[in-house]
Design a protein around this nucleic acid. Structure first.
Lengths: 187, 187
DNA sequence: ACCTGAACACCGTTCAAGT
DNA sequence: ACCTGAACACCGTTCAAGT
């Protein structure tokens, strides 16, 4: 029983470069970006891209995973700084605003909740962090006790996706969050 | 000054066939469906497809237009049958449920609100029909007076898009509509 | 006026050959 | 163990040639 070998240095480096370049290209061209173009700009052969990311889903997943992790961390930070309802509101704001950076990524973001991709771990952490924020706002009596993290995730994901579609809709972002929170608020 | 000639019979027929086949193929494969495949199954050359629909947007737009028109008509029918809030709820239900038929079409549906595509006429009719339903529910005191059709369109579009992403999310559809209406309801 | 289908440049995916 | 790059089948788009 030997330990699994650490990846070779060049492989590790190629993976990192691919991720950097992919983040750049996807930010430019959206989720439909050409994989060939990414490999080209990363200075590696197509086979190398495929070795590291067997499918487009996997590559986008790696990008999304980083985003999930960041947002999960932000949830905890906001909980430490702000009162319950304000923390929740601020987090929804950051969540829905940030998606636009990767145009067209919001849909796969939503879909990632189900399957058991490697993305699932990050996605779960993200959702649990949001759930904690929600639970806190329920304990304080701000939010109805009968809504769960899944409701929050779906509604916020809807706003994130919609504001991603056009500048006109993006301008409504904060208002849409308010309206959604209105539906979740205890009365 | 002569009248613009009516399109030739074969052209008219090809257009109709293309639309039928496109509806079928898009229902099967989603909005990313192969245009080549559509032309093939319609029994026409690629050039013919391009002559009738200069861009993929235009083809999808023609499909969406039909959907918009149907939903606009439904809004008026529901208004005649049901009390204000129930009519609005039923319409949102049909709207969010129907999108799944054309997987991946919801995003372009949302985006179509802005540009001045030929789609705009149908889209406007659709939004105005929804607006009338909304106004009625405001007149009866069920819905807050300060929300507008744009809010409704964005929130409902968000739900439609999200439930389109996975069966798990689709199962929450009716609940999400309830929550959204909760945010719009007068208190 | 309208249609066909071949031609072009591109893409995603695979895989033999290299180091 | 990992990488390269050519090969394959496909796609969207254009356009000369047909009727």
């Amino acid at each position: 029983m030997t330990e699994p070998r650490a990846p070779r240095a060049d492989a590790r480096r190629n993976r990192a470069i691919l991720l950097d370049v992919a983040a750049e290209v996807v930010a430019e061209q959206g989720a439909q970006a050409s994989l060939r173009d990414i490999a080209r700009r990363a200075g590696v052969g197509m086979g190398t891209l495929y070795r590291h990311f067997a499918t487009r889903e996997e590559l986008l997943g790696a990008l999304l995973g980083a985003r999930f992790d960041r947002l999960a961390a932000r949830a905890d930070a906001l909980a430490a700084e702000l009162p319950p309802l304000e923390a929740l509101t601020a987090w929804l704001d950051e969540f829905t605003a940030g998606t636009t950076v990767y145009r067209g990524l919001a849909p796969s973001l939503m879909a990632s909740a189900d399957g058991d991709s490697p993305l699932k771990a990050s996605c779960d952490a993200f959702r649990e962090a949001g759930g904690r924020l929600l639970a806190r706002a329920q304990a304080s009596g701000d939010i109805r006790p009968d809504v769960d993290g899944g409701d929050l995730f779906a509604l916020a994901g809807g706003v994130a996706t919609v504001v991603d579609q056009s500048p006109v809709l993006a301008a409504r972002r904060e208002r849409l969050i308010e309206l959604i929170l209105g539906g979740l608020r205890a009365r």
